[in-house]
Amino acid sequence: MVEPVLEVSNLSKKFYQQKKTITALKNINLSLREGEVFGLLGTNGAGKTTLSSILATLHPPTEGEVKYCGTSIYDDLDNYRRAVGFCPQRPNLNNYLNLRDNLYFAGLFYGLSSDEAKDQVNLLADELELHEYLDHVPQSLSGGWRQRFMLARSIVHSPKILILDEPTVALDPQVRHRLWEKIRGLKAKGLTIILTTHYLEEAEVLADRVCILHRGAIKLIDKPANLKNDFKLKTLEEVFLQLTEEEVAI
């Protein structure tokens, strides 16, 4: 059996706010196969962003383990961080640098040489059609373009795993479809992609498997087609609504 590229076991996350304990994730167990697109679905507050932030090593888990190729990510954090690209929900490009420098320095920050970083910027500009805006500052771009640059920044160091946290949120359908094409292109290159989204259609189109999170716990993990068959429903959206109807009723 092929070893999973990423394995999450018994992971929990609690936040302590104003003397209250908030459990964001409860006993999460999942494993990712190399080259798959893994969709993380859930309603607002389900724990999708918390889980993707933990996998991106931004936040530590309260309990549990994350293994990359069989080794705890915390035993060799540098190695894991070099293997991961993270595109957060909120674009956090440096507004004081133009987009060429944003991408160039992002490459240097992962240890690329100056020439390697420049080559990567040019390559990504070709692939993601970014040339027109390379010398602009982030604030001057529309949401769709900014998101495209965020995607470029997250892959500038050629990661093995890409974590996309709601990459198409608030984008118009045309831009969203164009970003889907780019994500498909990255999958074709062999990247393992964790795609956090609350667009069910997006998950249905892009994900090989989906994980439905509900109130911090995993409801189920399966292929979208299997889920539709098992639940005898036409779309993933209907499956999702049925699974989370308790929350919808509230």
């Binding site: 954090l77 961080r81 991961v84 956090n92 490009l93």
Partner: peptide, 13 residues
């Protein structure tokens, strides 16, 4: 707000 600091916090250093 901007959270550019978060990019710094996931670097391999």
């Amino acid at each position: 707000g901007d959270q550019t600091i978060k990019q710094r916090l996931i670097l391999p250093i």
